[in-house]
Simulated assay, not measured.
Amino acid sequence: MSEVPLPSLEVDVPPEGLSIGETARATGLSVDTLRYYERAGLLLDPAPRDGGGRRRYGSADLAWIAGLVMLRETGMGIGDVRRMAELSRTAGTEASRLAVLEQHRERVLADLARTRAHLAALDAKISSYRHAVAEKENA
């Protein structure tokens, strides 16, 4: 299978990788969130450690984290993200990964429809109040 496209981060990663603090800044996550994601099994692999035991994140780690952030920002739950990570660690699970993503896509589309309906209602309210304010100003 060809490589699966992941969101990219505009950051230069040195050969020794980025520290957890640098990774937090690059991804917009907190250090605590990165540690939680690792403990929760959401990363593709645990972050490699340097000689002093400190986490070092490489380009592939950052690409995975960027994809994880995108999924979380679209409302994917921790359980589904964990499932994607588990499946992604095993070759030949592309159909299962596709199913998880397609189910999530349907949820995102439903959320978008609900948000559009709410926006239309909000726009109607705003229009009504603008009209009322304009009438008072013209009276």
Score class of each variant (00 low, 15 high):
A120C: 11
S19M: 09
R56T: 00
D123G: 06
L18T: 11
R105I: 00
E73C: 05
R49D: 06
A91Q: 14
A120T: 14
T23H: 11
E73Q: 11
A26Q: 07
A132W: 09
M76D: 02
P15Q: 06
E3N: 13
R56I: 01
E137T: 00
S19T: 15
E135Y: 08
E106L: 10
E38S: 08
L119A: 05
M76N: 03
E10G: 08
Y129N: 09
A124T: 12
P15T: 05
Q103S: 12
T23M: 10
D123L: 03
S59T: 15
G51Y: 11
R105Q: 12
L6G: 00
Y36E: 01
L122F: 02
L101K: 10
I126E: 03
G75P: 03
R107I: 02
G28D: 11
E86T: 14
A85S: 14
S59W: 08
P48I: 12
D61M: 05
E38N: 11
A91L: 13
A63S: 05
G92Y: 05
R35F: 09
I78C: 07
P7Q: 08
G79D: 15
A99N: 14
M70C: 02
G77H: 01
V11N: 02
L71K: 03
T74E: 06
E102V: 12
M1K: 14
L62H: 01
A134G: 08
A134R: 12
H104T: 12
H104W: 12
A113W: 02
A121I: 00
V11W: 00
A121N: 13
A24I: 00
V11G: 02
P7L: 06
S19D: 10
L112E: 01
A124C: 08
R25M: 05
T23N: 11
E137A: 08
W64D: 04
D80K: 15
S8F: 04
K125D: 12
S88L: 10
T90V: 15
Y36C: 04
G75Q: 02
Y36L: 06
